[in-house]
């Protein structure tokens, strides 16, 4: 008897990704879809894709989706969740989307403790628009708008989203992962599952930041991109759990 160990997730359509070869978005889509399948929540999940390379995510996820204007995903997701409290609602955002144009919407959704999940793809560039500097671009990293490398005097510092969001009293669970290695991919999936569970248990705002490769704009092979995440990006953006109030909130819920 054979056992199926790898199959196409039900929550992913059969469409072929438009993402570049080696792109981290494809990996994360699959992980999110696997988690939705495993938790049996396909029918009650509503996703909010961003403006960014993942703008066509509704072509891939087989769950209800509404595309948000650039940066506004968390505002939409907050509203959907408040309108339909028993649905599972997630926004899917890039670093430009979350940490630049949509920082206010993201920050305040977290601060209000909205019971939503944010899947945050940190690829250190604006992928969709052709590799411009992002808020998360590393110091000295060359992009099309930081041709001599990002300079702190001119461009400021990489924005550490997980560190900042974990400081907000409204956030419950914040973890940074990476999809640069098989171990990282497994960890990322666990984090996504935990974040969704946090939401399902009604425990509040969860965010999973994922260091994700963009070989095209980094002008590296996929293998070198993974290395760059591990050796360079992870120094500025160390993976780890930045906040886990799940147990504490559960206790508080039980007591009240």
């Amino acid at each position: 008897m054979s056992k199926i160990v790898f199959k196409h997730p039900q929550s992913l359509k059969e469409n072929i990704y438009h993402y570049c070869p080696g792109c981290g978005h494809s990996i994360v889509h699959r992980l999110v879809a696997e988690v939705i399948d495993e938790m049996g929540i396909r029918g009650i999940t509503i996703g909010v894709p961003p403006a960014g390379c993942a703008v066509l995510a509704y072509n891939y996820f087989d769950v209800d989706m509404i595309e948000a204007p650039h940066g506004r995903g968390p505002a939409m997701a907050s509203a959907i969740k408040r309108s339909l409290p028993d649905r599972v609602v997630f926004s899917y955002q890039g670093d430009g989307d979350l940490a630049a144009i949509g920082i206010a919407e993201s920050f305040h959704a977290a601060n209000r403790g909205e019971n939503i999940t944010v899947i945050f793809i940190n690829n250190a560039v604006y992928g969709m628009t052709g590799g411009q500097m992002a808020p998360t671009t590393m110091l000295n990293q060359k992009t099309t708008t930081s041709p001599g490398g990002r300079k702190q005097e001119l461009d400021g510092y990489p924005v550490k989203v997980s560190e900042i969001f974990s400081q907000l009293r409204g956030s419950t669970y914040v973890e940074r992962c990476s999809v640069s290695s098989p171990a990282g991919v497994n960890k990322t999936k666990k984090a996504i599952k935990k974040a969704f569970q946090c939401q399902i248990d009604g425990l509040g705002f969860s965010l999973v930041e994922i260091l994700s490769l963009c070989p095209t704009n980094w002008k590296m092979s996929a293998v070198d991109s993974c290395k760059w995440i591990d050796e360079v990006m992870s120094k500025e953006f160390p993976p780890g759990v930045f906040k886990d109030n799940i147990a504490a909130r559960k206790t508080a819920e039980a007591e009240s």
Partner: peptide, 23 residues
């Protein structure tokens, strides 16, 4: 549902979301 939003930009996108949800 009432939300005092962080900006008018957030407010319009919130009503878009809630509208999509059927309210």
């Amino acid at each position: 549902v009432f939300i005092q939003s962080e900006s008018e930009i957030a407010a319009i996108n919130m009503i878009a979301g809630a509208s999509a949800a059927g309210l």
